[in-house]
């Protein structure tokens, strides 16, 4: 059944999309900033995996940890040192700040890594599973599984740890959280770090399946944006569901309308959703 092939393609792609969107959604939900740097973080995570593999032979799946640590650190200090200064001003100000940072980071990556597309060519790929007429590329499927594990851990951190509860509290009510003795600026920085770490992880996971160039960021950013609105801004399960929905939409949309309209279709759905259900599929205040 060819239907199941489309389903499998959509779900596998959707898992990676969910990972791309989860961090973006968290930052947007808690800090109320649209982080245009997110796409560049993904690309940087890709390069960490690429160079770890080509220079040191470290498998990209292990580089997920390095990417989380490096990008988390970068994210923490960007938020603490720069974005926190303007975080309470209007959306436009933070948007311009992250836009400027994105331009700087993209050009720095262009200079450092050149505009060439790079791809990790695994020496020992996992291969392809044949289930009757169904073909599953295993490396890609494994990335999807890891992506969901990461999203699950983020969700657990937010629900079970004191840092997580502080993040949720700040999201609900900044003033009240301040009064309860929560260090809001630090909480913001941790939130941004988590978002960046997840972006970096997503980049490392993508490296086994897709080629990336320094300017690939906006491609991922636009998808993260749609997925967030689709699933509901600030909701981690929403990002997971939204990612899967988006993957399926692209997969089946390509069948119905042709591949060239896949992104158009996604944005049409976005507009319809904004009109009909503006808070997204799972958009509620809280986690």
């Amino acid at each position: 059944m060819i239907f199941f092939q489309y389903l499998a393609n959509g779900l596998i792609l959707g898992g990676l999309y969910a990972c791309i969107a989860a961090g973006f959604s968290l930052v947007w939900g808690v800090l109320s900033i649209i982080n245009l740097l997110h796409g560049s973080f993904i690309v940087l995570g890709f390069y960490i995996a690429y160079f770890s593999y080509t220079l040191l032979g470290i498998h990209p799946f292990l580089s997920v940890i390095t990417s989380c640590v490096v990008l988390g650190g970068i994210g923490y200090f960007i938020q603490l040192g720069l974005i926190n200064r303007v975080v309470t001003s209007s959306v436009l100000v933070t948007l311009i700040l992250t836009f400027g940072l994105e331009l700087m980071m993209n050009n720095a990556m262009l200079v450092s890594f050149s505009a060439d597309y790079k791809k990790v060519l695994l020496a020992h790929p996992l291969g392809i599973a044949h289930l009757g007429n169904l073909f599953i590329p295993l490396d890609r499927a494994a990335s999807t599984v890891i992506a969901f594990l990461l999203i699950l851990s983020l969700w657990l951190v937010l629900r079970l740890t004191s840092v997580g509860r502080a993040i949720v509290a700040v999201r609900f009510d900044r003033q009240a959280a301040l009064l309860m003795g929560i260090d809001v600026n630090r909480t913001y920085a941790i939130t941004f770090a988590l978002g960046a770490a997840l972006a970096g992880a997503a980049g490392s996971l993508l490296s086994v399946s897709f080629p990336i160039a320094p300017l690939s960021g906006p491609l991922f950013l636009s998808k993260a944006f749609v997925i967030c609105v689709l699933g509901g801004v600030g909701s981690i399960p929403g990002a997971a569901i939204g990612g899967l929905a988006f993957g399926l939409l692209e997969s089946f949309g390509a069948v119905l309308f042709g591949s060239q309209y896949a992104l158009t279709l996604a944005f049409v759905v976005l507009i319809i959703l904004l009109l009909v259900r503006p808070h997204g599929l799972l958009g509620v205040r809280g986690f």
Binding site: Y6, L13, S209, F210, E250, S251, A254, V255, S259, Q260
Partner: peptide, 20 residues
């Protein structure tokens, strides 16, 4: 008869259609 946008990295849907 399918077209893919410039910059496409995932061709799975198009290729599935070709297979069928």
């Amino acid at each position: 008869d399918q077209k893919f946008p410039i910059g496409t990295v995932d061709f799975s849907s198009a290729l599935t259609e070709i297979r069928s």
